Simulated scan of single mutants.
Amino acid sequence: MHQLFSLVLGQRDLSRAGDLFSLEDVDIEDCLSQALDQIKAISCSADYLTSDNDQAVVEICITRITTAIRETGSIEKHSAALVALWESCLEHKLTPPGESTEDTPHAKIASDITSCILQNYSCPSVMTLAVPVAVRFLQRGNKELSRNMSSYLSLAAMAKADLLSDHAEAVTLSVLGEMFCRAVVLQSFSR
């Protein structure tokens, strides 16, 4: 792994995390999957939810990694590690507690990764990994994530419908559930 990524992630050094943006994309491209694996270990640790420092380091590193992936066109090379981190978010709470509108730390990670993965809806190898995970996000109750997943999945369906065929029931139930919730809200306002 690049020395600066090792330092920032290994020591969770927020003061040096911004320096990652001074690196050339091509200089870090080979270590991105390794960095994603380390981010997954950090975000799954017991103290992640209570450590603002760790959360900030992870957010900065994810932004740097997803930028490098886009700029180098290396989504296929890093899709397995990216999808593994994304999927690990499903093991954690994704809906804000009570009346809070602020995303949970794992919902932030999932949101940051979603577009990087699903903007590649025309790439079958990436979508083969991503679609089963995206469908699971539809059922987790985070409205913003569900809305984004639905939009990207509709693009994936247009590009390669057979990728969604195994998940048609789950997608349909999610869409119907969303429509039902909207109907109930609209009906309550009309009274």
Results as ranks from 00 to 15, higher is better:
Q3I: 15
F5V: 04
S6E: 14
L7I: 09
V8R: 04
L9F: 09
R12M: 10
R12F: 01
R12T: 11
R12D: 00
D13M: 13
S15D: 09
R16P: 03
G18V: 10
L20H: 03
E24Q: 14
D25I: 08
V26L: 10
I28S: 05
D30N: 13
A35V: 03
L36Q: 00
D37L: 14
D37I: 05
K40Y: 00
I42Q: 08
I42N: 04
D47V: 13
D47M: 10
Y48A: 11
L49G: 15
T50Q: 11
S51L: 09
S51W: 10
N53V: 15
D54P: 01
A56Y: 05
A56E: 11
V58I: 10
C61H: 04
C61G: 01
I62Q: 03
I65T: 06
T66C: 15
T66Q: 04
T67G: 09
A68F: 06
E71S: 15
G73D: 07
G73T: 08
I75D: 01
E76P: 02
H78M: 04
A80I: 12
E87I: 01
E87P: 01
S88F: 04
L94A: 02
L94P: 02
T95C: 13
T95H: 06
P96I: 06
P97G: 11
P97C: 11
G98F: 14
S100L: 10
T101Y: 07
T101D: 06
D103W: 06
T104W: 06
P105L: 12
H106N: 07
A107I: 08
A107N: 07
K108F: 06
I109G: 00
S111C: 12
S111Y: 13
D112H: 10
C116H: 00
C116R: 01
L118E: 02
Q119P: 00
Y121P: 02
P124R: 15
P124G: 05
S125Y: 03
M127H: 04
L129W: 03
V131W: 04
V133L: 14
V133W: 09
A134W: 02
V135Y: 07
R136C: 11
R136F: 06
F137C: 08
Q139I: 04
R140K: 15
G141L: 11
S146W: 00
S146K: 04
S146Q: 08
S151K: 12
L153P: 01
S154Y: 12
L155M: 14
A161P: 09
L163V: 07
L164E: 02
S165M: 14
D166S: 15
H167C: 08
A168F: 08
A170N: 03
T172Q: 13
T172A: 15
L173S: 05
L173N: 11
L173V: 05
S174H: 08
S174N: 03
L176T: 03
L176H: 04
M179T: 12
F180A: 12
S188W: 02
S188G: 07
R191D: 06
